[in-house]
Each structure stands twice: as structure tokens, then as C-alpha cells.
Amino acid sequence: MSSAVSPAPPTARPAVRRTSQLLVLVVVLVLAFAASLAFGSRWLGPGALWHSLVANNGSDADVIVRSLRFPRTVVAALIGLCLGIAGALMQGHTRNALAEPGIFGVSSGAAFAVVLGLQLGLVDSVSSTVWVALVGALIATFTVQQLAARGTGATPVGLALTGAAVAALLGALTSSIVLLDADTLDSYRFWAVGSVSGRGLDVAGQVLPFAVLGLLLAAINARDLDMLALGDDVAAGLGLSVRRARLVGLGAIGLLTAAGVAACGPIGFLGLLSGHVARRIFGARNTWLIPAAGVIGATALVLADLVGRLVGGAGEVQAGVVLGIVGAPLFVIVVRRRAVAL
């Protein structure tokens, strides 16, 4: 009798490979998180960093890590996770690898709400900005969903067109307000650039319930999205409620993007980059692609914030600016080489 071990089933090999790839991405995120704590205007060695985390005695290093670097790094990782997953979901539901969450009008809704809150005197702190932006983002998401459902049944094209129309309208209203009110413009421009500067754990706590609910909906929607990739008719034939799957996906995108925009402002490009890179590594299987996009998004925002602090000299370059300057040209090169079709 042969004692040779039978080979693993062919279906197990891709799963092992993808698990290994996802673990590598997690390790990179952990290293990026550690680098964000260690580097800045003052470098902290491993000993000082460890002491600051486990044995706080009020030293300068402890204050730097616990009061400044750790909170903003946590916020960057959380918001990057949300926007990365929202980007992957958006690309899956629109069947367009170059789509991004802003096309649903979520960012525009948050921006309009913040501007309106500034003009009415409702926004006077980071905390109040978070809540006002969340309300605006969720209202915009609900509006897009209702308009698309009544017109085209919330199809990919219908959602994209409705979202673009709502985003254009809200963008025009926002511009009209800030151009007519210099004080509102001055306050709004710091939020609109996209930044984790000045964001503490209290901000993370305020958006965390929305982020958790969005992540749960995304997990539920991942398997349905694999079926939707076969086409709405085929998915319906397999027993999937296409309308329910679209609504769950739109809810997840709205909640995740709303949490990100509310906490850090409209950080563009991150969802687009994360979803696309994850798809290049893991293929079209959403049960792997979606968590990978979240990890990639978290890593990208943490590193963007770190780079902004290192190159800013006495000040700092905001994370949204870093992502635009560094990421956009790189993404264009990748798209041209891969010949991605719109």
C-alpha cells in the first residue's frame, strides 16, 4: 500500500495562495502603521516607541506617540479601510474597473452639508463637522438610490448616471455658496483638501458605528456581487434577488464613504486605486478582492499621511494631496500598461 500523501484538491491551491497574499498585505499594513508611529519631525527608535505604547510616563516621546501619531494613524487606517472597500464595491456594481465611490454623489453630499453647516453656524469643530458630513452623505446616498430605482431599477448604468447627476447638482450648489461667502470658503477649504491632521480617537469613535455597519453589509454583499458579475439575468436565474443585492451594495458604499468623508474630508483616488490594485492581485473573486482592497486602502492612506509629514518641513502636506500627486501618475501608467477598458 502506498504511503504517499494525496495532493491537495486543485481548488485548495488558489485559496492557499490568496490567503498568503492577503497575509502579506496585512504585514505591510502593520509595518506602515509602525513607521507612521516612529517617523516624523522627530524619529523614535524601537525602544522609545515600545516604551511609549506600553509604559507611558509622560515623556516627550510618550506624548508624541499617544497624543499625536497614534490617533491619526488609527484614523488613517480606519478611513483607508472604508474607502478601499467602498471602491471595490463600486467597481463591482458598475462593472467598471475605473469607477470610484464619489460617482454616487456621497462626497458631494457631505461637502454640501459641511458648507451649509458652516454658513448656518452649525459647524465649529471637527466633531460637529463629522456629524454634519455624515448626514449629508447618507441623504445623498438615499437620494441616488431612490431616483435610480424609480427610473431604471438601480441598474449599474442607472446608478452611475443618477449619481453623476446628483453629484453635479450638489457640486454646483456648494460652489455657489463658497464663492458668495468668503468666511465659509476659508473654513471649508481646510476640510475639502482631505486630511487626517488633527483627527483624534474621538473622531474614529464617532464614525466607527457607521463603518462597522458598512463593513457588515460589504461582507454580505461580496458573494452576491460574484453572482451579479455573471449578469443580472443569470444571477436572477440562480435565485438571487438582484434588487436586494444592489440595495445592500449601495448601502455599504454609502455608509463606508460617508464615514471616510465625514472624518477626513473628500479624499479622492483612494477607492479607485485600492479596488484596481486588489483586482490585479486577486482577480475578480469579490470574497477575496473586497478585504484586500480594504487593507490596500488602509496602507495607502497611512503611508500618504506619513509622506506628507516627512516632506512638509515645518508644516505638512495633507494626505489627500500626496495621494493625488504620487498616486495618479502611477495609476495612469498601470492602466496604460494593462490596457484596461472603460
Rank of each mutant, 00 (worst) to 15 (best):
N221K: 06
L270K: 07
A113D: 15
G268K: 01
T287V: 06
S67Q: 07
R338V: 12
T174H: 03
I220E: 13
R285C: 12
G315W: 07
V335M: 15
D181H: 02
V166Q: 05
G308R: 01
G275C: 12
A86Y: 09
V277H: 10
A8D: 15
D60R: 10
L342Y: 09
V178F: 01
S20N: 11
G87F: 00
L215R: 07
A300I: 14
R150K: 09
L170D: 03
T19D: 11
L225E: 14
A154R: 04
I333M: 12
G320E: 07
A300Y: 10
F210I: 11
G254V: 02
A99S: 11
S20Y: 11
G84C: 04
V340N: 09
A133Q: 07
V24I: 15
G45A: 08
V261S: 04
G260H: 01
V16A: 14
P329N: 01
A341D: 13
L170S: 00
W131H: 11
G260D: 06
A99Q: 08
L53M: 02
R66M: 13
V74C: 15
G313W: 07
L230Y: 13
R199C: 04
L25V: 01
S127R: 10
V65G: 09
L301G: 13
G109W: 08
H93V: 10
Q145A: 15
L250C: 14
M90G: 09
L81Y: 08
S107V: 12
A15M: 00
L25D: 02
F190H: 13
G198N: 00
T162D: 02
G313M: 09
L215N: 08
A314K: 07
F210N: 07
A133L: 06
G315Y: 05
V207Q: 06
T141L: 01
R279A: 05
A4F: 05
F70C: 02
A12F: 04
S128L: 03
I220T: 14
G214H: 09
R72N: 10
T152V: 07
E316Q: 11
G163P: 04
L289W: 12
A236G: 12
L37S: 12
L238S: 10
A32Y: 03
A292P: 09
L301I: 09
V212F: 08
A319K: 10
T162N: 01
G237H: 05
A252V: 08
V277L: 15
L159T: 03
V178I: 03
A97W: 00
V207H: 05
V75R: 05
V115A: 13
A304N: 01
L217P: 13
G84H: 05
L147G: 13
V261E: 03
R244S: 10
R280I: 11
R280K: 06
I103G: 11
